[in-house]
Amino acid sequence: MTMHETRKAPPKGVPFRPRGRSRVRGLTVVRAVAGMAVFALLLFAWELAGRHDTTGLLPPFSDVAAEMAAILTGERLTTDVLPSVLRALLGFALGSVIGMTAGVVLGWWRRLDPWLRPPVEFLRAVPTPALVPIAVVAFGAGNALRVWVIALGACWPVLLNTMDGLRRVEPGYIDSARVYTSGRTTAVLGRAALPAALPQITSGLRIGLALSLILMVISEMIASSSGLGYLILQSQRLYALTPMYAGVLILACTGWLLTLLFSAAERRALVWFEGMKGRNHA
């Protein structure tokens, strides 16, 4: 820790770029190939099992894939798939805003803590799906219900991580920000505390996104006439097992894609964080 001065100064005029050295990159390729191989093997096993299945409970993967393609190119794309994704994203966005706002209030103005903590702890203990019937009464069985249920569930991890992140901000950053903004609270918060807490807020958002997808499915299985959750449930009731599996796979792909997009955005926003961590561990 006291050896800072012995660190080599970076080459002149070369700003920071995330490091992608060839050895690391080679390892990544090997890993990706290994992962794909196992994945392909699992699908192949599914295909075999489906073809030899006599109970009619397990359609082969090729049938399910064909059904998936049919859904994604047919009219169910606009009646079920896209509305679902949109609800999940809207609910996630709304929940994030609620969570961050409440997290900032609780994490920044600590004097409010004794007043607000008991109700917050209590509300947090309510499993969100239990709110669905209440939300049906409040919003009717429409889109508003589903978006709100998703938002109310997804806001918690965001709230807790924002609050905790703000409380853990290095006091030195706050001091510096106070000196160089003449102590304006909004500037100290917006220009120092929130950026410093961003890594942790991002972890909260990541969990919130996963929760959004779960709650989307749950909310669409109750009092619904469209969406991926509805598609899966309806297919099961009609004993149309191929579309049921196709729905689950589409759901899985959606979640995977959204997580991928989120990770890409996260890497962009937190280049400094990854770089700094890399330095300290080197």
Binding site: T6, R7, A9, P10, G13, P15, F16, G275, M276, R279
Partner: peptide, 14 residues
Amino acid sequence: DVIEHYPWQLSGGM
């Protein structure tokens, strides 16, 4: 010469 670097890329004195 290090204007576009991040501070944590620099030595303590810098």
